[in-house]
Amino acid sequence: MIALILRRGALSLVTLFLLASFIFFATEVLPGDALDVSLSADEIANMPAEVMARRKAELGLDRPILERYWGFLGGLLRFDLGRTIITRAPVGEIIAMPLRNSVALAGVTLLLALPVALAIAMAAAQAKGRAVDNAVSGAAIIGYSIPEFVTGLLLIAVFAVWWPLFPATITASTNDPLGVLLAAAPLAIATTIIGSVAYLGRILRVGLIEVMAADFVERLHLSGIPRWRIIWLHALPAAMIPGLSAAALYAASLVSGVVVVEMVFAYPGIGAELVRAVTRREVHVVQAIALAAAICVVLFNLLADLGIAALDPRTRR
């Protein structure tokens, strides 16, 4: 078990290292350096050469690429994410609170969505091929096809405009305690949950149907073991394994969804920071947000892998 954790952890670190390299090269090398990227074509054309050179020197961009790359990686190890190009504010401070808020939104979503998806999937798998199952499958594919921002808008239209139960957008601010923030965001949470339940429910249903057709379920059935026992003690833990793999794969999509939903509801998370950073072409902020999100996803994947190892003795070697 410990060997497994170490092995998975090492692989995650390799992935993160590759990712950091990819981010650096895709934003600071291939298209030009950070300053080129942050300026528009007009600005570059109009800027006198010596001003340009001075600014590059200020930002350390006159050093060779490899040196900058090592500097970038070294900075990451010291949790120094650099400063913004325009205001020279430390990036870490800019994204810390929004990141906290986004992680909270994603966490609440997963905590609520997994059991709901599981319950729905069980109901559908039990009634495979019958009306309940068809309705669930149909609802899942619809839920999965509607973009988060549309779901969010529909919720606003129904529950904030026509039937004003909740506020349309969130009034809480970035530094409010999490409880206040989440309490102010019921529609946002509902939106991310709907998408997650549709995705996870679909995959859990397939997993459950597969397990219910497994040989060991048939053997138990032919031994006269009661059905509820077969489902809860034998089939469900087995079906949770593909469910956890799916949840791990879904983690990245969830972050994307969270970014969009935050914009719909003006939730103070990394979504707004990201959009602001991309439109202002603040390279270092985009880098930091991408890395932070990737670390969250990798950590979640690690957790899911450990969950799978706990459920499936065959993976523990």
Binding site: F216, E218, R219, L222, G224, I225, H234, D312, P313, R314
Partner: peptide, 30 residues
């Protein structure tokens, strides 16, 4: 009646045992 009056030894023992449960518990369950 199943398990008591008539019982079956299934074809593929590996797939027919619950993979996430120790074998002793599976026999004790019956």
């Amino acid at each position: 009646r199943r398990g008591r009056v008539m019982a079956m030894v299934p074809q593929n023992p590996l797939a027919s045992l619950t993979f996430h449960m120790p074998v002793g518990r599976q026999l004790e369950e019956v």
